[in-house]
Amino acid sequence: MKPTTDRMLNRIKDVYMFILDKGTVSTQDLVEEFSITPRTVQRDLNVLAFNDLVMSPSRGRWTTTSKKVRMSS
């Protein structure tokens, strides 16, 4: 796997774990926590939402779904 792809997948996993830990977060919380642009956060959230791992109960707020996830290290 390309280093950039590996880095992206690790970041998406970290974003998911952050949301799981905090419960509900804003897009801005993610921008600040990971020091990435709002557009990058949105792309990562789109990947997670497409895989039914997160949802947005209200605009700009994100929480995890009840879908079970098996994490690898």
Rank of each mutant, 00 (worst) to 15 (best):
T24G: 04
V41P: 02
E32C: 13
E33T: 11
Q42N: 15
F50Y: 14
I12N: 06
V15E: 07
Q42V: 11
D29Q: 11
N46W: 09
P38H: 14
I12K: 04
V25Y: 07
Q28N: 07
K22P: 01
P38F: 10
L30E: 10
R11E: 06
F18I: 03
D52L: 15
V15L: 10
N46G: 02
V47R: 01
R43E: 04
L30Q: 03
L45V: 05
G23Y: 08
M8I: 14
T37W: 13
Y16Q: 03
S56K: 02
K22Y: 09
Q28S: 08
L48K: 00
V25P: 07
D52W: 11
M8Y: 15
F18W: 14
L45Q: 06
R39E: 15
L20W: 07
S26M: 02
A49D: 04
F50E: 04
S26T: 06
M8L: 12
S35G: 10
F18E: 11
S35T: 09
L9K: 10
V25M: 05
T37C: 14
D21A: 12
D29V: 09
V15G: 03
M55Q: 13
T27K: 13
L48T: 13
S56L: 10
M8G: 08
V25T: 06
K22Q: 13
N46V: 13
M55L: 12
G23E: 09
P38E: 12
E33P: 12
D14T: 02
L30Y: 10
M8V: 14
V54H: 00
L9C: 04
F50L: 12
Y16T: 00
I12V: 15
D44K: 00
D29Y: 03
D14P: 00
M55I: 10
M8S: 11
V54N: 00
Q42S: 15
D14R: 08
V54A: 00
T37K: 14
N51D: 04
Q28V: 05
I36E: 14
A49T: 12
Q42A: 15
T27V: 09
V25G: 06
Y16V: 09
M55D: 15
S35Q: 09
M55E: 15
L53E: 01
S56A: 15
R7S: 06
N10E: 14
F50H: 11
Q42F: 11
L48H: 12
F34G: 01
S26K: 06
V15Y: 02
R11N: 10
R7K: 15
A49L: 05
L30A: 06
